[in-house]
Design a protein around this nucleic acid. Structure first.
Lengths: 117, 117
DNA sequence: GTGTTATATAACCTATCAGTTATGCAAGCT
DNA sequence: AGCTTGCATAACTGATAGGTTATATAACAC
């Protein structure tokens, strides 16, 4: 399945290594070697993760001699957060109301079945 | 790679079909058939997506006769949102400051490497 | 009972993912 | 010039994802 941009962002965030990389980058830009150091994974593996993060728009590449330091890009994160926020508020607020409403509907259209939870 | 819980949540959110399902569920619980209807995908495919969402803790199963209506569960979403929020605020606010700070650190801890171009 | 509806599960296929090693290449260093 | 460092890329591999069809199960309707 091809991912859309939002999908690519969430997919990128799904991997713990990539999340750790983002956490690291939150405290400042870093070279590939620096980013690879905490993991017992090969450098190419890290480069691949970085490519995923980059395609998701979560990081960008700079240049400093032979280094290609990565830094965070906020945009994608904002989009992801927005998406979540929208629906979080949607049902966080309405949760109790919905619960009651559904219970009501259920007992109306079927004869009362006992509740789960 | 085995996903942790947060990872499973983000992975679940990566698929557009699953996001659409969540959006649908934000307006109330729904049976599998109801959830499957908008898609030109087989019912088993939808059941699989639902299983992914359930393992991620994003939805739960009720029972109503032969129906197994799904409903949203807020917890996982909250966790995901929290994670994003934490880092979003981290660099959204501090972006400019961080930039300057890093420049400073770089020139301090290495002997002055000339500007990063 | 028989048949139907709602859902789950199995078996299968293909594509993508996450890792590996080996190699290439550009930019310093001496 | 020749060696080293930092990174990218290619080719390969095993596992997982996402879809399919076919079948099983469970509750209802007659």
């Amino acid at each position: 399945m091809g991912h859309d941009r939002l999908g690519a962002t969430f997919a990128a965030l799904a991997d713990p290594t990539r999340r750790a990389i983002l956490v690291r980058l939150a405290s400042g830009e870093a070279s590939v070697m620096e980013l690879a150091e905490p993991f017992r994974m090969s450098q190419p593996a890290i480069s691949k993760h970085l490519k995923v993060l980059e395609r998701a728009g979560l990081i960008s590449r700079g240049r400093d001699a032979q280094r290609r330091p990565r830094r965070l890009e906020a945009k994608s994160l904002e989009e992801a957060t927005e998406w979540l926020e929208r629906y979080r508020e949607f049902w966080e607020g309405n949760y109790q109301r919905l619960d009651a409403l559904l219970e009501e509907l259920k007992t109306t259209q079927k004869k009362g079945r006992s509740t789960k939870r």
